[in-house]
Measured scan of single mutants.
Amino acid sequence: SDFTIRIGDRTLHLKNVSEEILKILEELLRRGIDFEELRKIVEELIK
């Protein structure tokens, strides 16, 4: 499924993301992860 994360004025667009990855990202966001850290993790996950 497609997913968009907005943190402040920044946006991260994800396409064809599995439910498992979404759950991980949601947990990281709940813990207050930094946007740049989140972006790096996402890039690793979707390689």
Rank of each mutant, 00 (worst) to 15 (best):
R30I: 09
G32L: 04
T4Y: 05
F3T: 03
I46N: 14
S18A: 03
E20V: 06
I33K: 08
I24G: 06
S18P: 14
F35Q: 03
L22P: 04
T4P: 01
N16E: 03
E19A: 14
I24R: 11
E36F: 14
H13A: 05
N16A: 05
F35L: 05
I46H: 10
R31T: 08
T11E: 07
F3S: 01
D9G: 12
E26H: 15
E27Y: 15
G32W: 04
I46R: 08
D9C: 14
K15N: 04
T11Q: 04
L29I: 13
K40S: 11
E37I: 09
K23N: 11
F3P: 01
S18W: 01
E36M: 10
I5W: 01
K23T: 12
E27D: 11
E37H: 10
E37P: 07
R30F: 11
D9E: 11
E19M: 14
K40C: 09
L38M: 11
L38Y: 04
E36W: 14
I33P: 08
V17S: 02
E26F: 15
K40P: 06
R39P: 05
E20M: 06
I41Y: 08
G8P: 00
V17P: 06
D9Y: 01
I21E: 15
F3M: 09
G8W: 02
S18H: 04
I41G: 03
I7G: 00
L45V: 07
G8C: 02
V42D: 01
I24Y: 13
E19L: 11
R39M: 13
L14M: 04
E43H: 13
G8F: 04
T4E: 09
H13P: 01
S1F: 15
K40G: 10
I24A: 10
E44G: 10
R31A: 08
R39T: 13
H13I: 13
D2N: 02
K47P: 14
E19Y: 14
K40V: 11
E36K: 06
R30D: 04
R30L: 11
F3I: 14
R30Q: 11
K40I: 13
E43R: 08
L14A: 01
G32A: 09
K15Y: 12
D2L: 00
L25P: 00
K40N: 11
L12H: 01
F35T: 05
E19I: 13
E36T: 10
E27M: 15
L38Q: 01
E19W: 14
I21V: 14
E19V: 13
R31S: 05
N16S: 05
L38V: 06
T4W: 03
D34F: 06
L38G: 01
K40Y: 10
S1P: 06
E19R: 10
K23W: 13
F3R: 02
R6H: 15
E20A: 10
S18D: 08
F3L: 10
D9R: 04
L29G: 03
R6S: 09
I24L: 10
I5Q: 00
L28M: 11
T11C: 03
G32H: 09
H13C: 11
R30W: 11
L22K: 15
K47F: 14
E20W: 15
V17A: 05
K47S: 12
H13D: 02
L29M: 12
R39S: 11
I24D: 07
I41H: 08
K15V: 06
L25C: 04
I46Y: 14
I33Y: 13
K40R: 15
D9A: 06
L45F: 07
E37R: 09
E37N: 09
I33G: 07
R6E: 09
V17R: 01
G32F: 05
E19G: 13
G32E: 12
E36I: 06
H13F: 13
V17E: 01
D34V: 10
R31M: 08
L45M: 11
K40H: 13
N16F: 04
L28W: 12
T4K: 06
R10P: 00
L25Y: 01
K15G: 03
E43N: 10
E26T: 15
T11S: 06
L28F: 13
S1T: 13
G32R: 04
T11W: 03
R31C: 04
K47N: 12
I41A: 07
L29H: 03
I7P: 00
T4C: 06
R39I: 15
L29S: 05
L12C: 02
E36C: 07
I46D: 12
R6K: 13
T4L: 08
E36R: 07
R10D: 06
T4Q: 06
E26D: 08
K15R: 11
F3G: 01
H13N: 05
D9L: 05
R6N: 10
V42T: 07
E26K: 15
E26V: 13
L28S: 07
I41F: 09
T11K: 03
I7S: 02
E36V: 09
F35V: 04
S1K: 13
G32Q: 12
E37V: 11
R31L: 07
I46F: 15
R30M: 08
E19Q: 13
L14E: 00
L29R: 04
D34H: 07
